[in-house]
């Protein structure tokens, strides 16, 4: 059988890095979705492991705290039979003043195949990718992008509705500080969904309209029209106090309360990238309710990250 068997189209994935979704074509995004379908099946087996990345090494390089993203990447790599190393900023030489690029090149010199990078500076992953030969996967760079989150949100919506095009998706909260919001905007608009951003003017400037999305400052104005509500986390550690109303005020105007939920479409789908501030941006009853996709997002994140790791690694052999 020829190596290309099983291809549904002539499309070839050629990116050895995943830095953001802004540059990806709709075809590339769809390819990740299709690939993730196959990897989702792997997680349902009794032996939840395939040898696709056997002998490869992935390093999680996190300069910011993370629970689920780091764990999800580690587990995704394990299920592909890759080895995983965790690089922690607090115990590393970055505290001795080593630059990010030096750190990355030193890590690569140990024979690493994939660097998964989370960093507080926007563009950090892109910068590193220009100085190393291995693959770089952006796991969040400042307020710029969090591409695997955008992909897994898209995957979860696609799975729930069987399509993405034509859906109305509200992304609600602290948009200006959110990389999740930006990656969601790219993924959803490219696949034909209508994106409605909702938040106070201080956290959602009108300039976002240039991305081809609607900007709304009154949640109640759109609540009955949308198919999906993606509630963002209130990022207490990132906001400047003057941008942000009081927590009570935020909850009153932008929180997903039971009262607001009752005015939603009957089949509305509720999402949240986590970690949740229960009772602030989302009420516990809704987060744990039957229309919540929050834990499904986590489950799907694994399949999507397996797909991404598989694709970028395979692209190495042809680019390098």
């Amino acid at each position: 059988m020829s190596p290309g068997h099983g291809h549904k189209s002539g499309f070839k994935w050629t990116r050895k890095h995943l830095l953001g979704l802004q540059d990806l074509s709709a075809e590339e995004i769809e390819h990740v979705m299709t690939t993730a379908d196959s990897f989702k099946e792997v997680s349902t087996r009794s032996v939840k492991k395939v040898p696709a990345l056997r002998g490869r090494v992935l390093v999680n390089t996190f300069f910011e705290d993370s629970t689920r993203t780091r764990t999800s990447f580690s587990l995704a790599a394990s299920r592909l039979s890759a080895d995983v190393i965790d690089f922690s900023e607090k115990t590393s030489s970055t505290s001795k003043g080593e630059t990010l690029i030096d750190t990355a090149r030193n890590i690569e010199a140990m024979g690493i195949d994939i660097i998964v990078l989370r960093h507080p500076a926007a563009g950090a992953a892109e910068t590193v990718s220009r100085h190393v030969n291995c693959s770089v996967v952006n796991a969040g760079d400042g307020a710029h992008e969090h591409p695997t989150q955008g992909l897994l949100d898209l995957y979860t919506i696609r799975e729930r509705f069987g399509k993405v095009a034509g859906l109305k998706v509200a992304v609600v909260g602290d948009i200006v500080n959110s990389r999740v919001a930006r990656s969601n905007i790219w993924a959803l608009t490219k696949m034909g969904a209508e994106v409605i951003l909702v938040g106070p003017p201080t956290l959602l400037p009108r300039t976002f309209e240039r991305f081809g999305v609607r900007v709304v400052h009154d949640f109640d104005q759109v609540i009955g029209q949308v198919d999906v509500i993606n509630m963002l986390r209130v990022q207490f550690e990132r906001i400047k106090s003057s941008q942000f109303p009081s927590v009570r005020e935020f909850t009153r105007f932008f929180g997903l309360t039971s009262d607001r939920f009752n005015r939603c479409k009957k089949d509305v789908f509720i999402m949240h990238p986590g970690p949740m501030n229960r009772g602030i941006e989302i009420s516990s009853k809704i987060a744990d309710g039957p229309q919540s996709g929050i834990l499904t997002q986590v489950t799907n994140g694994l399949a999507v990250r397996m797909a991404v790791l598989y694709l970028v690694t395979q692209a190495q052999s042809q680019v390098a």
């Binding site: 190596p3 549904k8 592909l80 598989y310 694709l311 052999s317 042809q318």
Partner: peptide
């Protein structure tokens, strides 16, 4: 059975062949 992820020439044939689900 989709054997793509079990191939021994995965590292040589790139770009990634589309792996279908095994059922």
């Amino acid at each position: 059975l989709d054997v793509t992820l079990y191939r021994d020439d995965l590292s040589e044939i790139g770009p990634a062949p589309l792996a279908g689900p095994t059922e």
